[in-house]
Simulated assay, not measured.
Amino acid sequence: MATLNGKKALVLGGSRGIGAAIVRRLSADGANTTFTYAGSAAAAQALASETGTTTVQVDSSDRHALTQFIQSQGSIDILVISAGTLVMGDPLELDADAIDHMIDVNVRAPYHAAVEAARQMPDGGRIIVIGSVNGDRMPMAGAAAYALSKSAVQGLVRGLARDLGSRNITVNNVQPGPVDTEMNPAAGPFSEFMHSFMAIKRHGRADEIAGFVAYLAGPEAGYITGAQHTIDGGFGA
């Protein structure tokens, strides 16, 4: 059902994994969709050809490039911020520049992108950030900085929901648990451990996340804002 006909959507970080599933779903639901990629040019072009969408290379860690690109897009009805990165390891040994880059992508980029999009977004627009259940729960060592970045997203959506509520612009955080992607494959080294305490003992599928994003982007979700929406198979239960 084409519930998003006539809507203009921008997905930041849409070439692979959850982002690619979101591009497919929004496009299938009728949205005129553009998505960005950082380094996966071949995957981005293949997805654009498959879905009839537009793709542009933009580095989300570069604030000036990101905000200038969003300005160039004009009025956007739906902004989905899916770009993200993961750095794990002993915090006493991790490279500080790698941590700062992760914070640039996972925290600073969502803030600046959302604010810039809101300048031209029509009343009733949608801003959706892809966070992580690790903003609520971190059951393993080595991911303190990643958890920090995803907890920051929670504060971001709560605050912007207040700031933009008078315009009926909703701001929401979708928090996936383990999802079968290149970043966290179902056959990866942590799978058995994670599945051991989950209620549904499997990785999620990217299209399951995309389905909920499409709902939040659609006409029935106009009263949902400032919220954390966990889709995690009971990871955090």
Rank of each mutant, 00 (worst) to 15 (best):
L86E: 09
G159S: 14
V87A: 15
P122I: 06
S75P: 05
V105L: 07
L47Q: 13
A143C: 12
G124Q: 02
E50A: 14
P219E: 11
N5H: 07
G74S: 12
L216N: 01
K150M: 06
D59N: 14
L148W: 03
L26Y: 07
I81H: 11
G222A: 12
M102A: 13
Y223R: 02
S75R: 05
F193A: 10
E220G: 11
T85I: 15
A217T: 00
M183P: 00
A186F: 04
L79F: 01
G39A: 13
D207V: 03
M194A: 11
V11P: 08
R16F: 00
L148N: 03
S166P: 10
V213I: 07
L10A: 14
A186K: 12
P122Y: 02
T85D: 15
V115N: 08
D90L: 04
T67M: 14
G159E: 15
G6Y: 10
D90N: 13
K7P: 06
V23F: 08
V213W: 12
D62T: 07
A46V: 02
I224R: 05
G155W: 10
A117E: 10
F212P: 04
L66T: 11
P189M: 15
N172C: 14
A48W: 05
I22G: 06
V174H: 06
P139D: 14
V23Y: 05
G204I: 01
G13L: 13
T53H: 03
N134T: 01
T54E: 11
G135D: 10
V129N: 05
G218N: 04
H195S: 06
A9Q: 03
A206G: 04
N134Q: 03
Q71K: 08
A46I: 02
E182L: 14
V80L: 13
T3P: 03
V213E: 07
T85H: 11
R108P: 13
I130N: 05
N134A: 02
H203N: 08
A42L: 11
A118W: 09
K201C: 04
Q71N: 12
G234C: 09
D163P: 02
R205T: 06
T55E: 12
S166D: 08
D104W: 03
G142H: 12
G211M: 05
H64C: 13
L94K: 14
G125P: 10
N134S: 10
A187G: 12
I209H: 00
F197G: 04
A143E: 09
I81P: 05
A227F: 07
V115A: 15
T230W: 00
Q57I: 12
L92H: 11
E116F: 07
I128P: 00
I209D: 00
L164F: 08
G19K: 03
R16I: 01
I209M: 00
E208C: 11
M121Q: 08
Y215N: 04
G177S: 01
N173M: 00
H203A: 12
T54P: 09
G89Y: 10
F193G: 01
H64Q: 15
A2C: 08
S72M: 15
A9M: 10
G142N: 11
A210G: 07
S49K: 05
V213N: 09
H195M: 13
G135A: 13
M183C: 03
E220I: 01
H64P: 04
D29E: 15
F193Q: 06
G135F: 04
G233F: 00
A109R: 09
E116S: 14
T230C: 02
R202C: 05
I200S: 00
